[in-house]
């Protein structure tokens, strides 16, 4: 399972830990706002070769049912996946505002 955004994002004086040691993989914010373009998988073309999954710096691509799917909460729209996909199954599209 991927790390996920927690419900609790703010910490009161009492809740701030005594020391600098806290739960690993605790996420409070997404990265989707960084994107100006977004990768879109063409499921008809995707063969599930996993090259995009392998090379994604943010680890936001997974293979489900033999096809790549993207966690848009954390995709920054860098476009590496579209470039690495030799069969052209990923297109970068303008982020809808």
């Amino acid at each position: 399972m991927r790390p996920y955004v927690r419900e609790k994002t703010g910490f009161t004086f009492e809740e701030v830990p005594e020391n600098t040691c806290f739960e690993a993989g605790y996420l409070t914010t997404v990265n989707s706002g960084w994107r100006s373009i977004r990768p879109v998988i063409n499921a008809a073309k995707c063969v599930g070769c996993e090259q995009c999954y392998l090379y994604c710096p943010d680890g936001v691509i997974a293979i489900q049912g033999g096809k790549a799917v993207i966690d848009y909460d954390f995709c920054k729209g860098c476009g590496i996946c579209a470039k690495i996909c030799k069969i052209g199954a990923i297109e970068m599209e303008a982020e809808r505002k």
Partner: peptide, 28 residues
């Protein structure tokens, strides 16, 4: 101590803390 690497409940340690909480850590 709980202030340690823990393979059952992994920890991130010696982290950064922004202005809101940094001084609370210092106070403690």
């Amino acid at each position: 101590t709980d202030n340690r690497i823990d393979f059952d409940n992994p920890k991130n340690m010696a982290f950064s803390a922004g202005p809101d909480t940094n001084y609370i850590f210092k106070y403690k």
